[in-house]
Simulated assay, not measured.
Amino acid sequence: MIDDPALLARAEALVAAYAAAGRRLATAESCTGGLVAGLITAVPGSSAVLERGFVTYSNEAKSEAIGVPAGLVAAHGAVSELVARAMAGGALAASRADVAVAVTGIAGPGGGSAQKPVGLVHFGLASRDAPVRHLERRYGDLGRSEIRARAVADALGLLEAALRAG
Rank of each mutant, 00 (worst) to 15 (best):
R23E: 01
R24Q: 15
A26F: 04
T27E: 00
T27S: 07
A28D: 04
S30Y: 04
C31N: 07
C31I: 10
G34R: 04
L35V: 01
A37D: 00
A37K: 01
A37Q: 05
A37W: 02
G38F: 00
G38M: 02
I40G: 10
T41P: 05
G45K: 05
S47F: 06
E51N: 15
R52F: 13
R52V: 12
R52D: 12
G53S: 12
V55C: 00
T56M: 04
Y57P: 10
N59Q: 09
A61Q: 09
K62M: 07
E64H: 07
A65G: 00
A65R: 06
I66F: 05
G67V: 06
G67T: 11
P69L: 12
P69E: 06
G71N: 09
L72K: 10
L72Q: 09
V73M: 12
A75L: 06
H76N: 05
H76E: 14
A78C: 08
V79Q: 00
V79R: 02
V79E: 03
V79A: 05
S80N: 14
S80K: 13
E81I: 09
E81G: 11
E81R: 13
R85Y: 07
A86L: 13
A86T: 08
A86Y: 09
A86W: 04
M87I: 09
A88Q: 04
G90F: 03
L92P: 12
L92T: 08
A93V: 09
R96F: 13
R96Y: 04
A97T: 10
A100S: 13
V101D: 07
V101A: 13
T104K: 06
T104I: 13
T104E: 00
A107D: 07
A107R: 00
A107P: 01
G108R: 12
G111C: 10
G111R: 02
G112I: 14
G112D: 07
Q115M: 13
Q115N: 14
P117L: 03
P117D: 04
G119A: 13
G119R: 03
L120C: 11
V121Q: 11
F123E: 00
G124T: 08
G124A: 15
G124S: 12
L125Q: 10
L125M: 15
A126V: 14
A126Y: 02
D129R: 03
D129T: 15
D129I: 10
A130R: 15
P131W: 14
P131Y: 15
V132W: 15
V132E: 15
R133C: 11
R133I: 07
H134F: 13
H134L: 11
H134Q: 13
E136L: 14
Y139W: 05
L142K: 06
R144F: 14
R144E: 07
R144A: 14
S145D: 13
E146F: 07
I147W: 14
R148I: 08
A149V: 03
A151Q: 04
V152Q: 03
V152T: 10
A155W: 10
A155Q: 03
A155D: 12
L156D: 09
G157Y: 01
L158V: 12
L159E: 08
L159T: 11
L159S: 11
L159Y: 08
L159V: 10
E160W: 03
A161H: 01
